[in-house]
């Protein structure tokens, strides 16, 4: 564990808590993409299959349980509890255009052609594009609530911090995972224009409103 990865995990944790607070306080899921949350649930389920078979640390297990638990709770809030406030018309990204290519790529490009490794690789590739339905929804509605912007900033920062973690681990431990790094770079790049909007607008108290 290093400071970059710890900050990354805390940023990820913060993002999930911000999202849950937004939903619970406003009792609304307006502006939130249910499809992205379904993709995140797929990512965590595929990645944490070893939750019961390999024990790394208390921290690792607790975080995995928390991430899996909260993402399914979020889906419950979107599609059941606060279903009336879910904006399905604007949440129209075709996720099959993500899942099929990512699934195929995981089969072709992986570290080892073994079921658990391919599923892990699938979760890494899927995570890098899982935010697209959410960004697409914001571009369609033309704006994002400030709290949703904070959620996205924390979520985007988490993988950017992981990139720093991988640089540190390369020099400190000789650890290097090309698949995770490349997917992490793609994932972070997808947030760049949002980061720009966040820093130029939200930090000045304005609201994010894309030219619709």
């Amino acid at each position: 564990m290093n400071i970059f990865r710890l900050c990354g995990d805390m940023s990820h944790l913060a993002a999930i808590i911000i999202l849950l607070l937004k939903m619970w306080k406003t009792r609304s899921v307006a502006g939130i993409s249910g499809k992205s949350q379904i993709l995140f649930a797929t990512v965590f389920t595929a990645r944490y299959l070893d939750l019961f078979t390999s024990f790394i640390s208390i921290y690792n297990t607790c975080m995995k349980v928390f991430f899996i638990g909260t993402v399914y709770f979020t889906i419950y809030l979107i599609y059941m509890k606060f279903k009336a406030t879910y904006d399905s018309n604007h949440d129209s990204f075709r996720v099959e255009f993500l899942i099929v290519p990512v699934g195929g790529l995981a089969f072709l490009v992986n570290h080892e052609f073994a079921p658990l490794e391919i599923i892990w690789t699938f979760s890494i590739y899927l995570e890098s594009v899982a935010i697209l339905p959410q960004l697409f929804m914001i571009s369609k509605t033309g704006e994002a609530e400030t709290i949703t912007s904070h959620y996205l900033f924390a979520l985007g920062s988490y993988r950017a911090l992981y990139l720093c973690n991988w640089i540190y681990r390369y020099y400190a431990e000789g650890f290097f995972d090309l698949i995770a790094v490349v997917a992490g770079v793609v994932q972070t790049i997808l947030y760049c224009d949002f980061f720009y909007l966040y820093i130029t607008k939200v930090m000045k108290g304005k609201k994010i409103s894309l030219p619709a």
Partner: peptide
Amino acid sequence: KKKKKGKDEL
């Protein structure tokens, strides 16, 4: 320098 340990990251 491939990955040495198992999957120890989240």
